[in-house]
């Protein structure tokens, strides 16, 4: 990459450091795309002009890092992630506690936790396959292109996981996929990707999502099925004439309302738990998937 552009991108990263990490990554991706394309087009149109003059002019027209910082921080203020908007006026007391049942964010977190079993297993399988195949082939000449392809696929999957985290957990994640070292030859690219921190944290994240996914899935399924069986206890006992727990525990009639209420409470508690785990997991995903 041109050294003026590289310097500009460094300055831009510096100027934007107080903004959200994902916003910075998007802004850098936009700037890099624009500046390299502009340089390439201008060089073709004016082959006689000095290249470093052209770059300076292009950067001047793109705007100073401070301009770009202001522009992106304005836009960030008005665009919020999909479910992050459910921050309405805080209600207090018991009603406020129960209103979680109407919160899209809590249900979306449940959905994420359920899906994470499948995605966790898929990521784990793909990552371990990729790493072992790459390591196995590394002594051979075809080893490095294979390793490069796997590393690129990890970054791609990391981006998709990030979009899912933003949509379901409401944590702002990058909206543009960036592939480091684009336009370089494959050897230089391999080295750049290998030395990028987020490549490795993405791999660790993908491996960790399997145990996490199993825990999340088990929690959601156990808690919801327990809650539903408590709520459904009268139906089981008085309509199907089956005992509440198999061998033979019958709930006395006067206790029934309490059992049903306990089921409802368990659903509310589960939703609160899902929301809290969703928040924690979103922050964890951000620290691992965003460079």
């Amino acid at each position: 990459m041109n050294k003026h552009i590289e310097k500009y991108l460094d300055d831009l990263r510096d100027a934007m450091r107080e903004l959200d990490k994902s916003t910075i990554q998007d802004a850098l991706a936009d700037a890099e795309d624009h500046l390299t394309t502009a340089l390439q087009v201008e060089t073709e149109e004016k082959p006689d002009t000095d290249k470093s003059e052209l770059v300076k002019e292009i950067i001047e027209r793109y705007g100073t890092p401070e301009d770009i910082f202001e522009q992106y921080s304005d836009i960030e203020e008005i665009t919020t992630p999909v479910f992050a908007t459910s921050e309405k006026a805080e209600e207090t007391g018991i009603w406020g506690f129960c209103s979680v049942i109407a919160e899209p964010k809590a249900w979306a977190a449940c959905l994420y936790m359920t899906l994470s079993l499948a995605t966790g297993i898929a990521y784990f399988t793909w990552t371990t396959t990729g790493l072992s195949v790459s390591l196995g082939f590394l002594p051979l000449i075809i080893g490095i292109p294979i390793a490069l392809l796997f590393l690129l696929s990890f970054r791609g999957i990391g981006f998709v996981e990030g979009r899912m985290v933003e949509a379901l957990l409401g944590v702002r994640m990058p909206r543009r996929a960036i592939t480091p070292g684009e336009g370089e030859n494959w050897w230089a690219r391999f080295k750049i990707i290998l030395t990028t921190r987020s490549t490795w944290t993405t791999i660790v994240y993908m491996l960790l999502l399997m145990p996490l996914g199993i825990i999340y899935f088990t929690l959601i399924v156990t808690l919801f099925s327990s809650a539903l069986s408590l709520i459904g206890a009268p139906v089981i006992q008085y309509i199907f004439h089956e005992p509440f727990v198999d061998p033979g525990i019958w709930i006395p009639f006067y206790a029934m309302p309490f059992v049903v209420a306990a089921g409802g409470t368990l659903i509310v508690l589960t939703l609160h738990l899902a929301k809290a785990i969703g928040k924690l997991h979103g922050d964890f995903a951000k620290s691992m998937l965003v460079s």
Partner: peptide, 18 residues
């Protein structure tokens, strides 16, 4: 003439996205 610039080019991208 490139003298008058309504906005910096870098400001276009967030607007295009939105």
């Amino acid at each position: 003439d490139m003298d008058f610039q309504l906005i910096k080019q870098g400001a276009l991208y967030p607007v295009l996205k939105s």
